[in-house]
Design a protein around this nucleic acid. Sequence first.
DNA 1: AAACGATATTGACAAACATCAATATGCTAA
DNA 2: TTAGCATATTGATGTTTGTCAATATCGTTT
Lengths: 117, 117
Amino acid sequence: MATKSVKSTKSKSETKVCCGTARDIPLSESDAAGLALVFAALSDPVRLRLLSIISSAPDGEVCACDLVTPIGKSQPTVSHHLRILFEAGLVEREKRGVWVWYRAVPERLDAVASRLR
Amino acid sequence: MATKSVKSTKSKSETKVCCGTARDIPLSESDAAGLALVFAALSDPVRLRLLSIISSAPDGEVCACDLVTPIGKSQPTVSHHLRILFEAGLVEREKRGVWVWYRAVPERLDAVASRLR
DNA sequence: AAACGATATTGACAAACATCAATATGCTAA
DNA sequence: TTAGCATATTGATGTTTGTCAATATCGTTT
């Protein structure tokens, strides 16, 4: 790293000098870890498609039994991905009888989206 | 999965029946894969902090040499993470002399953010 | 040219992850 | 209560990922 007190060693291609000012990091370590968890939940194609199906459901909710076939993965795999979405707060679930209904949590998506700026 | 043509087998706790309508998935498989790559780039705390530092730089750019110390990881590790951010289109880089300057790509962040709804 | 410094790449390794078969749990219906 | 179905969990396996030491690459300076 270049030292802080470089005076004016400009070469033809540079005007500025990197200075090593230890500015504070805007995003704290624990905030970053928390945010990273949500993005990790969104970092799998299967989960994105699940979220897509759930979010665009006419009734706002989808039965888990209707998610296995269109996704094309085994039932345990789909269940696993739904759990990760749930734990990230991206969907909520409600058991009614034998079936489990999933709904998207748009406020959560908005919250994440707004932190991208 | 429940069959499609269930007529009215309501039990006390349910009004609706899951129906197995094979609706189209709004998000295509390849779109999902592409989006997942960007979210994967955002799914690491170190990369989120790098992006945070770069995005909030007064000059809009930061020298790579000023990223190693505040992140607290080895130089190869930081270089590795910067590469992933770059390949995801989240930052751009410019080599000037010995140094490499990184800038955020806000349009990219906006594009990703807007797809979260 | 030779030495030095900033950045990138390689190789290795442990931890995390996606996936499925098998099994467990829990609700409903006969 | 027993049978059957929807969902969740467990265990195993191959793959991906984060990390660092060592090394390579490439400007710059002497």
